[in-house]
Each structure stands twice: as C-alpha cells, then as structure tokens.
C-alpha cells in the first residue's frame, strides 16, 4: 500500500511492447513483467493493407478486483464480414471457456484475413492510474487504451473504414470523441455491440482468452511462497474472491500487485484490517482537519504535563530552522 502506489502510472504506449505472434497467443512479454501495460498483436494480414477494413473493440475484465483488464481489437476486410459471421463468433460472455478457446483457434486459422491486437492493462497500472494525485479514472483509461489500439491498426497500415465499439460511459459522447479523433472512419458505439457485430464478438473473444490465461498463470512478483490460486472469478461479489482477499491481506503493504487497490472492496478491507496509512492528498476537509489539529494540540498538552515540555511560548524559532522543518527536542 506504499511505494507501489507512488510509481508513475504506465500509460498505454504505442511504440513498444509489440510482439508478432505467428500461431497461438504468446503471453510471455506480459508475463515477464506483469506490473505494466503490454501490447500483444497478431501479424497484419496483407489483405488488410489493401482492402477497406472494419474493426471491433471490446474489453474483458473491467469489473474484477483481481487481475488485468484486457482491451482487444479485431479487424478484417469488410468483404469478409459474412465469413466471420459463419464462424459463429458470439459474445464471449455466452460462451464457455473451452468454446472461447476453440473460437480463438478458428480466428487464428483465419489469420490470412483476420488480425488482432491486445492491450493488457495490469492491475498495477489500473491501481496507480486511479489512485495517483491527479486521478485518471477507469473510463478515461479505457478510452485512451481503445484509441491507442485503433491508432496502432492505422499505423500498421490497416485500411480502416468502419469501427465498432462496445460502449464505455454514454455512447453518444464516446462516438463523438472517436469520430473527431479518427476523421474519415465511420465509428459506431453501441451498448451490447459484442452481440450485435461479429467483429466486436471476435475482439471480445481475443480479450477474454488473454485475460483468462494471464489470470490462470499469474506470476506473483511478491514472495508469497505457495500461493493459493483458488480465487474464484475475481469479481468482488464472489465469496471465493473475498475469502482470498482476506487471506492475502498484509497489514502494512495491503495486497500483491495482482489486486486492484483502487477497487472499493480492496480499500474497505485494507481500511478495516490493515494499518492506517495517511497520504498528504487524503481528503480531509473542514471538521476532520480541525479534529486532527485538535488531536495534536491535545497530545502536545498531555506530553507537556508529563515530561515538563513547556517550550517558551515567547521564543520564536528562526526561519532557518522553520523553513527546513527542523526543531529542537526535549525527549526522544
């Protein structure tokens, strides 16, 4: 709960962390350092550089208190939309894990015309973004990640004409924002886009498969010994997840980086069971601040009567010392 949060947030990067994977998803770039944001991508099919393409965006792991949030894009030529429909990709939430793996295999087999890219936002990235001094909320983080991925596709030479997005926040505003950023591309933002547009379903499958694999094989950076991996779904209301969070709560440090510190579930547990930590940007308005100051002067009063610590009130310490926060002591 300390130095971890002080780190600068890892904003999505566009240049680095891109790895071309020939066959199946290779998660090693993320797994070597799972504290940052990482991009994985398939090879760009040649046909996507020459023909008009459509692109779908979806995310997996927005709600859980554990593990990363994964953003996925999937793109293919507009002319291949029908073929994609026939492969029966569907909203990843309606599928079992095996079905998803199966469909991802199918997408991989169609790599001559289907491409994908993923941005894995580590739980640490999410925590540090949301808890930094100037708050960077989950919606802004989601939007920026989606924008980064679309830009990646454009930078790779994919001839985008249509983009389909599942909504984050109000659909109209988001659509307007994206349209402005990518003039010349028709942007469609819809709730439940993952069940309406096959290309969004495909993106959701890529994202969900990546998240499942990362969560299953999470490499704990912390020295926790044999970690109990039975943490359930990772959603705050899952009793297994709650039990796991209770078990792995360290009174001083809170949680391993696997946990999103910015989730109220984690925060409530840390506040009730952990050591209290004060930051100088803690919100402390009016009454509370006054209360604290009262507390302090009360304490000073008590220690004075106990240890004879009555500093001469007329003596004013020279500013050389006050400016440097230096003071004399009368006891240790």
């Amino acid at each position: 709960m300390c130095d971890v949060i002080l780190e600068a947030p890892n904003r999505p990067q566009t240049e680095n962390n891109t790895k071309f994977i020939p066959a199946v998803m290779d998660l090693s770039p993320f797994e070597t350092d799972n504290s940052v944001s990482c991009r994985l991508a398939s090879q760009i099919p040649e046909v996507c550089r020459t023909e008009d393409c459509c692109l779908g965006i979806d995310e997996a792991g927005r709600g859980p208190v554990l593990g990363p949030m994964v953003y996925g894009i999937c793109f293919c030529p507009v002319s291949k939309k029908e073929e994609l429909k026939e492969s029966k990709v569907a909203d990843s939430k309606t599928l079992t894990e095996a079905e998803r793996e199966n469909l991802f295999q199918k997408l991989d087999e169609a790599k001559s015309y289907i491409g994908w890219a993923l941005q894995i936002l580590s739980p640490n990235t999410i925590s540090t973004s949301m808890l930094q001094r100037t708050k960077y909320n989950l919606n802004a983080l989601s939007h920026d990640t989606a924008i980064g991925l679309v830009q990646y596709a454009l930078d790779s030479g994919v001839q985008l004409t249509e983009v389909f997005v599942d909504t984050v926040g109000p659909a109209e505003k988001y659509e307007e924002k994206l349209s402005k950023l990518f003039p010349g591309i028709k942007v469609t933002v819809r709730p439940k886009a993952d069940s309406l547009f096959p290309i969004v379903s495909a993106a959701s499958i890529c994202a969900k498969v990546a998240r499942d694999r990362v969560v299953k094989g999470w490499n704990f950076a912390e020295d926790l010994g044999e970690v109990d991996t039975d943490y359930g779904s990772g959603y705050p209301n899952d009793p297994k997840t709650k039990a796991w969070l209770l078990k792995y709560l360290d009174p001083v440090f809170g949680y391993p980086q696997f946990v999103r510190f910015s989730w109220s579930t984690a925060q409530t547990l840390m506040e009730s069971k952990g050591v209290t930590v004060h930051w100088d940007d803690d919100e402390e308005v009016g009454e509370k601040a006054a209360q604290r100051q009262n507390n302090r002067s009360m304490l000073a009063y008590f220690s004075a009567s106990a240890g004879g610590n009555n500093q001469n009130p007329t003596h004013q310490t020279h500013r050389f010392f006050t400016e440097r926060r230096l003071k004399s002591l009368d006891t240790l």
Binding site: G308, N309, N310, Q311, N312, H315, F321, R324, R325, L326, K327, S328, L329, D330, T331, L332
Partner: peptide, 23 residues
C-alpha cells in the same frame, strides 16, 4: 534561548557536545 529542557548529546567521555535537531 528557551530556558527549558532541550535534548543534546555528549560523545564518549563527554569530549564533544552535539545538539539534536529533528526534521
């Protein structure tokens, strides 16, 4: 300056006096 107690340190054998300031 204050005419009340402050903390100081005397090194081994009282050879040297040090004042104690706390940041």
């Amino acid at each position: 300056a204050t005419d009340v107690a402050s903390l100081y340190m005397l090194s081994s054998g009282d050879a040297q006096l040090f004042e104690v300031k706390a940041f």
